[in-house]
Nucleic acid binder design. Structure first.
Length: 263
DNA sequence: ATGTCTAGTGAGACTAGA
């Protein structure tokens, strides 16, 4: 069977609900991972998704951050925040275990800290969070279950993932240490769908609201779908829905979808 | 020229975060 797994930083679910519902109707995702829902769990409009046949798994936070997994499958096991990272008061990760076609698959929805400005505790928090994420997923991969880590990683992996990388050299998204930590995460055994599918260079997933970034195609690729080795054999398609950025009241990020064929 | 947006506070000519 084919399933679509999507990541989308919506920049506020309440501000984006019409766009998200319309996108669901047009794209029929099986698993939709949202970042920056920017609300408490009790303020999330669950019924608008459950009425379409979805299950809703949430880790909310007032005003900022917050992640959700909207899924046609029932989660067998749900983890909120990086296990063991008990001091983290920010809501940035939720992981579900699904049983799809008699196969167990884990989906981890990530909203990695932005980290700006560098030389502040925000950047330190980002780097430490990346270490904790790597340590957690590294242990999960040992279980040899297909694992999907996707979300807004707030990391521009290479010069070709920004229109003008020179503009980003002093930014936490393209900082050398951020990129090194991202590579350390990849190197535990994760594969970027964007690279697996050999997508052309200079394709972006986020365009700032400011300075006409969208009109000038001044974007960055910071939303990633990473697959464990066991999950790569399922990958059949991958797509960035750039068109969503041109709609009314868009998020600054667009949906990114991997299609998996699980037989 | 931070060429904008979201959410929160509390009523702003606001702030924080991105």
């Amino acid at each position: 069977m084919k399933i679509n797994v999507t990541t989308w930083n919506v920049n506020g679910i309440r501000a984006r609900i019409e766009n998200v519902l319309e996108w669901i109707d047009n794209n029929n995702p099986d698993v939709l991972c949202l970042q920056e829902i920017k609300c408490l769990e009790e303020d999330f409009p669950n019924e608008l998704f459950t009425s379409k046949g979805y299950n809703v798994y949430l880790l909310g936070q007032k005003s900022f951050n917050g992640v959700a997994i909207i899924s046609k499958f029932v989660s067998q096991d749900t983890k909120k925040n990086i296990p063991g990272n008990t001091s983290d008061i920010q809501s940035r990760m939720i992981e579900c275990t699904f049983n799809i076609n008699s196969k167990s698959i884990k989906v981890c929805c990530i909203y990695l800290p932005n980290g700006n400005p560098i030389n502040t505790e925000k950047f330190t928090y980002k780097i430490e969070w990346m270490d904790k994420l790597k340590n957690y997923i590294e242990k999960e991969l040992l279980k040899e279950i297909p694992y999907i880590a996707l979300g807004d990683f707030n990391v521009i992996p290479t010069r070709d993932d920004a229109k003008n990388y020179e503009e980003w050299v002093d930014d936490a998204l393209f900082n050398k240490l951020s990129i090194r930590k991202y590579r350390e995460l990849i190197n535990i055994g994760l594969y970027d769908c964007h690279i697996l599918k050999q997508i052309p260079l200079k394709q972006y997933t986020q365009w700032d609201y400011q300075r006409g970034a969208w009109q000038n195609n001044n974007g960055v690729r910071i939303d990633h779908i990473l697959l464990s080795s066991y999950a790569t054999k399922y990958l059949s398609d991958y797509q960035i829905d750039k068109n969503e950025r041109s709609k009314d009241k868009p998020s600054d990020h667009v949906p990114v979808t991997a299609t998996l064929t699980i037989d």
